[in-house]
Design a protein around this nucleic acid. Structure first.
Lengths: 338, 338
DNA sequence: CTGAAAGCGCTTACAG
DNA sequence: CTGAAAGCGCTTACAG
């Protein structure tokens, strides 16, 4: 194979030092004189030398690579999460390997095997769930696992999640306090742990309060589904006047259906609460009252753990973060909130 | 360093073959008997062996890594581009290294040096522009460069771009045909090549037709800027009745300002055209008439080139794709369109 | 088809 | 502080 790029030997020759000296110069804290380092940097500069991280990764226990595994990465919430994670990772001197899955467990496993192939220091799983045996293979390879909004743990991993059920309860209480009489839950059939948590919290609060709920669940978690959900809900004889949507995308669809297809006034005739606090929730056409996912907080927790955790061991950690309610314009005003 | 994972030697021992045989078994088309390969796969399976791509990349001329370099990756258009690129890359057996920049040339250069460190097969640049000298360093390292919507070429690279100016001209013609009398151009101050192209096309068409234009340019390319732009434009005594926004995000803001802050009817009193065809443009609150960026086409062109191009040479290629107009509801209907 | 050997570019004890 | 040497896990001529 043709030698393709300048290597440490070239730099060593030009600087008149050994290969080891070159290596040390690029290793923070290594024992090398300031003079030698200066000569090396000088030579590296003129030759355009960059340490080969592939070779370095072969020897050190770290490659600096972290796999980000997610489905539907162009969705507003997901791309926010990805952007925050990538930024934090870069600040910590790591680089993100982005692997797009289709949310099936098979494709998550494929992604994880890829990650192992590249000996990533860690993998952040945002969609699907790796089998326990595969998680153990990762662990054995010294790879850390970060599970975001997943419903199970895996040995040696950190699980970061929101208190989705609590948010669901709060959504119920809020709609009741706003004076809504006919409550509905609008959700997708994706069946992710996050969605399930929100649904359960909302339902549990309703059942405890002894109020009946209309539950509508359709297709995937998208704006289009929201539109369908809204259309279906608003056409009912006992049309709901308060809807908790498990996602902002769904909520935007529900709002558009209610307003444009039925001409209902929000929040006068209909109150809507979403979840995620995506950019679009702030847009004037929506001004959606919703719950903010602490995206930055999740990214911080993940990267801090990667930086500080000692060798991964069998025990798993779970971190639970609260979702904070953001008051905007889609819930009828009432006294005493907050 | 502690041996961290199972390697080819382990598999060879278990299968009773040489390391070379293991290597060949995992190389499509290598000369190895079906029998040997079967034994190897069997052993690899029980040991949970994954070829180490870092070591492989050290030897082969390809690492399978492709760097994706972009700013504001959580923006709708950008995340669509990223998703398409990542998907195509995965189909081609590559994996994406995602590097988030702040659009300054310095941070693009930092990103490119990272890419060199990991010996990526290619780098796809979507923001900023690498200096010619750095581009040459990439080329020397056998790294291909894909420039998306950039205004210059670089030796040995492919540049993929849209005919932005033509779209700008078409936007002008469309607004005129719709009967708009007071035309405006609404854009940001980001000054990217794409924006500049659209602005120039629109302005050139106006000047050729001898019509005066109101030009408004503010801040960054965001919904908020669109809101400001719309507010500013609608407050003018000679309020425009036809606005070309260089981006959908801007257009959504302009629409919301016009409708919610001034109560104008779209398209009756105001026609608006955007650019990008992001998801939100399809939402019922907007139903924006816009130009579709051929995101899939761009991703295809990039990955095809990476797959088929022989060794990068000095010559650069430019591919220009058309932006297709998508008729929706924000331009006043008129005869003879299309 | 198969294996022993050389080599990719690095880092890190080891000895000085 | 410094260099020679061993070794990380792989692939690929080379010879059989």
């Amino acid at each position: 194979m043709a030698r393709t790029s300048v290597n440490a030997k070239d730099v060593a020759d030009l600087a008149g030092v050994s290969r080891a000296a070159v290596s040390r110069s690029f290793t923070p804290g290594a024992s090398v004189s300031a003079e030698t380092r200066a000569k090396v940097f000088q030579a590296a500069e003129t030759l355009g030398y960059q340490v080969n991280h592939l070779a370095r990764g072969l020897i050190r226990s770290e490659t600096g690579l972290v796999a980000l595994i997610a489905a539907e990465i162009n969705t507003p919430y997901r791309s926010n999460m990805l952007a925050a994670l990538t930024a934090r990772l870069q600040e910590a001197g790591k680089v993100a390997l982005l692997i797009n899955t289709d949310r099936s467990d098979a494709s998550v496993e494929r992604a994880l095997r890829q990650a192992i192939s590249y000996r990533t220091d860690a993998a952040v799983v945002m969609s699907g769930m790796p089998a326990r045996s595969l998680a153990e293979t990762c662990l054995r390879n010294g790879m850390r696992l970060v599970l975001i909004n997943r419903d199970e743990e895996r040995p040696g991993s950190i699980r970061i999640q929101l208190d989705d059920a609590e948010a669901g309860r709060q959504a119920f209480a809020t709609l009741v306090a706003a004076g809504c009489k006919r409550l509905a839950l609008a959700t997708s059939q994706a069946g992710t742990p996050s969605l399930a948590g929100r649904e359960e919290g909302f339902k549990a609060a309703a059942s405890e309060a002894g109020v009946d709920l209309t539950v509508a669940a359709l297709g995937m978690t998208s704006y289009q589904t929201g539109l369908d959900l809204g259309t279906q809900l608003m056409a009912r004889p006992d049309r709901p006047d308060g809807v908790f949507c498990t996602t902002d995308l769904l909520a935007c669809g529900v709002l558009d259906a209610a307003r444009h297809r039925f001409g209902f006034q929000v929040p006068h005739e209909l109150s809507v609460i979403g979840f995620d606090d995506i950019e679009e929730a702030r847009w004037e056409s929506y001004a959606l009252t919703t719950f903010a996912q602490p995206v930055e907080g999740i990214a911080d927790a993940a990267v801090d753990w990667l930086k500080h955790a000692e060798d991964p061991k069998e025990s798993a950690t779970t971190v639970s973060l609260p979702a904070r309610m953001i008051w905007r314009g889609t819930v009828r005003p009432f006294r005493n909130h907050d």
